[in-house]
Protein backbone atom coordinates (compact mmCIF):
# COMPACT_ATOMS: atom_id res chain seq x y z
CA UNK A 1 0.00 0.00 0.00
CA UNK A 2 1.34 3.47 -0.76
CA UNK A 3 0.37 6.69 0.94
CA UNK A 4 0.75 10.33 0.18
CA UNK A 5 3.40 12.33 2.05
CA UNK A 6 3.19 15.94 0.80
CA UNK A 7 6.69 17.42 0.50
CA UNK A 8 5.74 20.83 1.91
CA UNK A 9 4.77 19.41 5.31
CA UNK A 10 6.73 18.55 8.46
CA UNK A 11 5.92 15.40 10.41
CA UNK A 12 6.23 13.93 13.89
CA UNK A 13 6.93 10.26 14.49
CA UNK A 14 3.59 10.25 16.36
CA UNK A 15 1.99 10.86 12.91
CA UNK A 16 0.88 14.49 13.19
CA UNK A 17 1.78 16.82 10.32
CA UNK A 18 2.34 20.59 10.27
CA UNK A 19 1.83 22.97 7.39
CA UNK A 20 3.57 26.27 8.05
CA UNK A 21 2.21 29.51 6.59
CA UNK A 22 3.95 32.52 8.15
CA UNK A 23 3.43 32.13 11.89
CA UNK A 24 0.31 29.97 11.48
CA UNK A 25 0.71 26.19 11.71
CA UNK A 26 -2.03 23.90 10.41
CA UNK A 27 -2.00 20.53 12.19
CA UNK A 28 -3.53 17.24 11.15
CA UNK A 29 -2.67 13.54 11.01
CA UNK A 30 -0.97 11.71 8.15
CA UNK A 31 -2.68 9.44 5.62
CA UNK A 32 -0.61 6.57 7.02
CA UNK A 33 -2.03 7.22 10.51
CA UNK A 34 -5.56 7.41 9.14
CA UNK A 35 -5.12 4.00 7.53
CA UNK A 36 -3.66 2.53 10.70
CA UNK A 37 -6.54 3.81 12.80
CA UNK A 38 -9.32 2.45 10.63
CA UNK A 39 -12.79 3.98 10.82
CA UNK A 40 -12.51 7.24 12.78
CA UNK A 41 -15.49 7.80 15.04
CA UNK A 42 -14.47 10.58 17.44
CA UNK A 43 -12.19 13.62 17.41
CA UNK A 44 -11.64 16.12 20.20
CA UNK A 45 -9.28 19.11 19.93
CA UNK A 46 -9.01 22.39 21.89
CA UNK A 47 -11.09 25.46 21.13
CA UNK A 48 -9.93 28.82 19.76
CA UNK A 49 -7.89 30.74 22.31
CA UNK A 50 -6.55 27.71 24.15
CA UNK A 51 -2.81 27.15 24.43
CA UNK A 52 -0.96 24.06 23.18
CA UNK A 53 2.59 22.98 24.02
CA UNK A 54 5.08 21.19 21.82
CA UNK A 55 5.32 17.49 22.68
CA UNK A 56 2.22 17.49 24.87
CA UNK A 57 -1.16 15.90 24.29
CA UNK A 58 -3.64 18.36 22.79
CA UNK A 59 -6.49 16.09 21.83
CA UNK A 60 -7.87 12.65 21.14
CA UNK A 61 -8.78 10.65 18.07
CA UNK A 62 -10.73 7.40 18.31
CA UNK A 63 -11.42 4.60 15.89
CA UNK A 64 -14.01 1.91 16.53
CA UNK A 65 -11.48 -0.05 18.56
CA UNK A 66 -8.72 2.33 19.61
CA UNK A 67 -8.22 5.61 21.48
CA UNK A 68 -5.13 7.60 20.46
CA UNK A 69 -3.64 10.79 21.90
CA UNK A 70 -2.74 13.66 19.57
CA UNK A 71 0.60 15.35 20.27
CA UNK A 72 1.25 18.96 19.41
CA UNK A 73 4.25 19.57 17.13
CA UNK A 74 4.33 23.24 18.19
CA UNK A 75 3.78 25.67 21.06
CA UNK A 76 1.25 28.44 20.55
CA UNK A 77 -2.36 29.54 20.67
CA UNK A 78 -5.26 27.91 18.84
CA UNK A 79 -6.73 30.35 16.29
CA UNK A 80 -9.14 27.87 14.71
CA UNK A 81 -10.28 24.28 15.15
CA UNK A 82 -12.07 22.21 12.51
CA UNK A 83 -15.58 21.80 13.90
CA UNK A 84 -16.70 20.00 10.72
CA UNK A 85 -14.30 17.12 11.48
CA UNK A 86 -15.48 16.88 15.08
CA UNK A 87 -19.08 16.72 13.84
CA UNK A 88 -18.32 14.16 11.12
CA UNK A 89 -15.03 12.42 12.06
CA UNK A 90 -15.56 9.65 9.50
CA UNK A 91 -14.86 12.23 6.76
CA UNK A 92 -11.29 12.88 7.86
CA UNK A 93 -10.09 9.81 5.96
CA UNK A 94 -11.18 11.29 2.64
CA UNK A 95 -8.76 14.24 2.73
CA UNK A 96 -6.41 14.20 5.75
CA UNK A 97 -4.07 16.86 4.31
CA UNK A 98 -6.84 19.18 3.11
CA UNK A 99 -10.38 19.30 4.51
CA UNK A 100 -9.32 16.97 7.32
CA UNK A 101 -7.05 19.43 9.13
CA UNK A 102 -7.63 19.63 12.88
CA UNK A 103 -6.11 22.83 14.33
CA UNK A 104 -4.62 26.14 13.26
CA UNK A 105 -2.12 27.48 15.76
CA UNK A 106 -0.33 30.83 16.01
CA UNK A 107 3.26 29.88 16.79
CA UNK A 108 5.23 31.36 19.65
CA UNK A 109 8.51 30.40 17.95
CA UNK A 110 8.58 29.15 14.31
CA UNK A 111 12.12 27.79 14.74
CA UNK A 112 10.91 25.04 17.06
CA UNK A 113 9.90 23.01 13.98
CA UNK A 114 13.53 22.58 13.01
CA UNK A 115 13.59 19.14 14.64
CA UNK A 116 10.51 17.82 12.84
CA UNK A 117 10.78 15.17 10.13
CA UNK A 118 10.73 15.85 6.40
CA UNK A 119 8.34 13.93 4.16
CA UNK A 120 11.02 11.45 3.10
CA UNK A 121 12.29 10.97 6.68
CA UNK A 122 8.76 10.33 7.92
CA UNK A 123 8.00 7.99 5.04
CA UNK A 124 11.05 5.83 5.67
CA UNK A 125 10.26 5.81 9.38
CA UNK A 126 6.72 4.46 8.96
CA UNK A 127 7.20 2.28 5.90
CA UNK A 128 10.75 1.11 6.52
CA UNK A 129 13.28 0.94 3.74
Amino acid sequence: MSFEYPEDLKYLDSHEYVRLDGDIATIGISAFAVDQLGDIVFIEVPQTGEAVTQGEVFGTIESVKAVEDLYSPVTGTVVNSNQAMMDAPEQLAEDPYGEGWLLKIRLDDPSELDGALSASQYRSQVEGD
Partner: peptide, 19 residues
Protein backbone atom coordinates in the same frame (compact mmCIF):
# COMPACT_ATOMS: atom_id res chain seq x y z
CA UNK B 1 -5.22 -6.70 9.82
CA UNK B 2 -4.12 -9.50 12.16
CA UNK B 3 -3.66 -9.55 15.94
CA UNK B 4 -3.39 -12.01 18.78
CA UNK B 5 -6.64 -13.13 20.39
CA UNK B 6 -7.03 -15.97 22.88
CA UNK B 7 -3.74 -17.56 21.78
CA UNK B 8 -4.49 -17.28 18.04
CA UNK B 9 -3.40 -14.83 15.37
CA UNK B 10 -6.76 -13.69 14.05
CA UNK B 11 -8.12 -11.20 11.50
CA UNK B 12 -9.36 -8.06 13.26
CA UNK B 13 -10.62 -6.36 10.12
CA UNK B 14 -10.56 -6.65 6.35
CA UNK B 15 -12.18 -3.66 4.62
CA UNK B 16 -13.08 -1.81 7.83
CA UNK B 17 -15.04 -2.53 10.98
CA UNK B 18 -17.97 -0.26 10.14
CA UNK B 19 -18.43 -1.63 6.61
Amino acid sequence: RLAGFGGWKMPIQYSGITA
